[in-house]
Amino acid sequence: MISRKLFVGLLHIGCFAFLLLGCNYNPKYKLPIIGQQTLENGEVIDHVIRPFEFIDQDSNIITNATYRGKVYVTDFFFISCPSICPLMTKQMLRLYTHYEQEPQLLFLSHTIDPRHDSPIRLKHYADKLGVTSSKWHFVTGNKDSIYNIAKDYFIAVQDDSKGTDPASLIHSGKFMLIDGTGHVRSFCDGTDPKSVEKFMFDIDQLLKEHKSEK
C-alpha cells in the first residue's frame, strides 16, 4: 500500500518537474542554422558569415575574431534615419539592457551611411545611448564592404518565395542572431516589440546551447 502511494507521489512530483523543466529549456532542441547549404567535395557546408573588418566608435578595428566564440545580435542602421532606425535602436537598447550582465552576448550595429556616420559621430551616438564599447560595437567602413556583408547576413533570412534581393533588405529593420562560429541562427523584426520578445527566447536558447558546449 505504502509503495503504491509512494509511487503515485513520486509520479506527481515527476510530472511537476517535467512541466517546470520542460517549459524552460530543452537540451535536445537546437536553433536551426539558417541559410542555404552548399556542397563542397561531397561535404555539406552551412552558410557562414564571411570575414569582415570594420572600425568601431572607438576607432578600434573590429573583425570576426572580435565575436569568435561569442553569441551576437547584429543589425544595419544609420544615425540620420528618420523612419525605422529609432524604433530599431529602442528595441536593440532593450536587448542590451536585458543582457547587459551576460558576458557571452555582444552587439554589432553597422551604419549603412559611412560617409556621414564617422567613428566620432558613432561614438557620440553610443554615448548618448549610454552603452559600453566592449559590449556594443557601432561600426563603419568602406561602403561596398558594408553592403557585401549585409548581403551575407540577409541572404540567410530572405524569403526565397518572394525572390527578394538580399541587398534590398538592408533597410528592413531585421535583427539577426549569430552563433560563435558565424552561423545565422535566428532573426526578427527589430521594429516590432512582440517579434523582439520572441527573439529573446531564441537568444536564451542559443546562450544555453553555447554554454553547454563549453
Binding site: S83, I112, K143, D144, D165, P166, A167, S168, L169, H171
Partner: peptide, 17 residues
C-alpha cells in the same frame, strides 16, 4: 515624405548592385 523615403531606401540595394 516617409513613404517616398521608404521607397527610395528599398531601391538602395539595387542602386548599389
Amino acid at each position: 515624405v516617409m513613404a517616398l523615403h521608404d521607397s527610395a531606401m528599398a531601391q538602395m540595394g539595387h542602386l548599389t548592385s
